[in-house]
């Protein structure tokens, strides 16, 4: 799925013009990006949380050569899926993985 397909979904389900839908989709991701860039969390209930984490500098190792390297301090974005989403993915709506435990 791409942004264009999300726009298509909005057009189909909500009846917005594709132009308007595209504008809104663009804005939504733009705002999320801006917010995260400021170090703020973005929490979308039913979907998940985007959190910027600060990673301290640490010593690492090049797995190929075994050489020690210093990994610099940096900020990374993490996504923690909501429980609702995780559960939805494990409901047997499609049977791609065959049999699955169903309590």
């Amino acid at each position: 799925m791409t942004k264009a397909e999300i726009v298509e979904q909005i057009y189909e389900r909500v009846g917005f013009s594709k132009k308007e839908a595209a504008e809104l989709v663009e804005k939504v991701f733009e705002i999320i990006k801006d917010t995260l860039s400021e170090g703020e969390k973005v929490k979308i209930s039913g979907f998940g949380n985007f959190v910027v984490r600060h990673k301290n500098a640490r010593k690492g190792r090049n797995p190929q050569t075994g050489q020690e390297i210093l990994l610099e301090e940096r900020k990374v974005l993490t996504f923690k899926p909501s429980l609702v989403l995780k559960n939805l993915l494990n409901e047997s709506e499609h049977d791609e993985t065959g049999s699955e435990e169903q309590p």
Binding site: I31, G39, E40, K41, V42, K43, I44, S45, V51, R53
Partner: peptide, 13 residues
């Protein structure tokens, strides 16, 4: 969960 640069603030849906 420490070291978030802007820990207090968050944006919800």
């Amino acid at each position: 969960p420490t070291g978030c640069p802007n820990p207090g603030s968050e944006m919800t849906k």
